[in-house]
Amino acid sequence: MTALTIRGVTKSFGATPVLGGIDLHVPAESLTAVLGPSGCGKTTLLRLIAGFDDPDAGVIAFGDETVFGDGRSTPPQRRHVGYVPQEGALFPHLTVTANITFGLPRKARVAKHRVPELLELVGLDVRVADRYPHQLSGGQQQRVALARALAPEPSVVLLDEPFSSLDAGLREATGRAVVSALRATNATAVLVTHDQAEALSLADQVAVMRAGRLVQLAEPPVVYGSPLDVGVARFVGDAVLLAGQVRGAHVDCPLGTIALRAGNIDGAAEVLIRPEQILLRGDGSGVPARVEEVSFYGHDAAVRLTLLPDGPRVVARITGERDLPAPGQQVGLVVTGDALAYPLSG
């Protein structure tokens, strides 16, 4: 498997710019998630890598081999990418076996080369081999689509929101099966998604895209813990944002004085705290607040509170099925860990 390098790639459709200069390096044998809201250009980026469309400018290289650049473009059929589109897009007229062996030379197709092995790799029973796509569930189709993409041993595997059409429960299980198959084959992979939980839980590094630009490229804990700006912070998870005043290594905000992580700004700032950092106390300590609303999810609960006397409102995420506060109850709030501060925008 080879690394994937993208430098200065731009693309516009007519007068509409879609990608404005993307630089991205995906190390060999790793999985990078491209995360962004719909319309940010992430699917376009994937299509450029696959060779279905050509960039306006820039360079795309698989390892040492330039597949786009200097006015030359390798056609998709010679790029050796594995492509897993949304909803699988299995060939409806072919059986699972014929789908998986589609990209192999004729001799290997006849010999049904590696079909049982690939089915096992993606966690499917060999008995599905003779079925047609319409006889499979959505999750099974997605796994066959991955097996089909992996069969010709591609240099790069591209996954375009492969789980977005699946039910929530199936989505996670399929995601884990797909990633373990990718790891087992030491594949270099790019996963495009708008689901932050999917990106954070599955990828080695996350590339956050916004409006045709790559905003942040980092490992999942870094993206979540140290988002580059407020927008990224809100996109990768729930965020409590408060007005504050930075003084050296601390910030004063309605939740008290909190230690700052790597802050190099001064004065008025926007303070980011994750809801799980806020603890509820019933013993009179902490910043007083009134419980407004409790949403219980089973594994945890979100508590919406108004700081006394009159705001702002914050969200705390608490674990444990016991001791849920009741709306109207007065509690004290304490922040654990440190906060991030951003310059005030606008």
Partner: peptide
């Protein structure tokens, strides 16, 4: 697209 990516 898929067929192209598989070498056709």
């Amino acid at each position: 697209d898929v067929a192209h990516s598989l070498g056709s």
